[in-house]
Amino acid sequence: MALLELKDLRVHFRTPNGINRAVDGLDLVLDAGETVAIVGESGSGKSVASMSILRLLHGENCRSDGEILYQGRNLLDLDEKAMRRIRGNEISMIFQEPMTALNPVMKVGRQISEAILLHQNVDRDTAMRKAQDMLDLVGIPESKRRLDEYPHQLSGGMRQRVMIAIALACEPSILIADEPTTALDVTIQAQILDLVKELKDRLGTSVLIVTHDLGVVAEVANRVVVMYAGQKVEEAGVGDLFAAPLHPYTEGLLRAMPKLGTSRVTPDWRLAEIPGQIVSTIGEIKGCVFANRCNRVQEVCHEIRPALRTFGSGRVAACHFPCGSKVPDV
């Protein structure tokens, strides 16, 4: 049994313009000790998918269907109380924006020990000592002093470390990291990724990492799920994916990636080479979601949605004319 399995996950938002199918039929498996990356450009539904696992999207205009099986239990069936025991305890999450993810009027120590007090049967002092240990673990110097500081006294990288400390304080079996490094500058990005990798090995946590940076994927992930317009368009082991992408979108992403040694500083370098805009997920999409931007597009692509097909071991892609195959008129 997989540690976490998403089956036909659909997260739909009701909007004034119609239903936004932000995530539409996503299947995903995360095994114990594994790191799976979800990649895709802005608006492809990565954050919505990852937040829906802990049921952090609320409000009446949002609806999740399908199954989110954690150790065989469907999280969508749990009541709020049972769900709270999972959050921060068995499955934790860190977010894209470290600058705003911490409560500005609460001391760092309290924010970490809060998680410990919620899930472990310990007193305040013990929790605070544990919080200090966590700060040490995530590599924050002078941890004792930092416990008494407020978030605004810390840099962005430090804050993301604190977030990691909060997330890992109860030794969860899964860490979901939604673009944990996007908002940080490059050297800090590398440090945070190294930290995640190191702690993952040390604590045996499985990691689901969301990113639009293929560099991050290459660095940490075992397996990659490529998302586009709320759907999985390709899934493969990291080596396979980088060696021979099947979906034209994945190929585009890879081509847009800077070659080793080139600077990453140009804003939006990632998508510079895929022309066009991501298709709106509001309303029904006919045919392939990527058809309007695809360089291998054929008549049929606009008519029939390609199903996910298996290509060799553990590889799937949803494309009528995957890369490497023959396209009639190209």
């Binding site: 709270r84 921060g88 934790s92 993810a101 409560n103 919620l118 977030m163």
Partner: peptide, 25 residues
């Protein structure tokens, strides 16, 4: 705000999020 989501992700209850995390802000 994002930090309310963080508090939720920790497993904090709705009431305490309202009166501890949010009200103070």
């Amino acid at each position: 705000q994002d930090y309310i989501r963080t508090a939720m992700a920790k497993g904090q209850s709705r009431t305490r999020i309202l009166f501890e995390h949010a009200l103070k802000n």
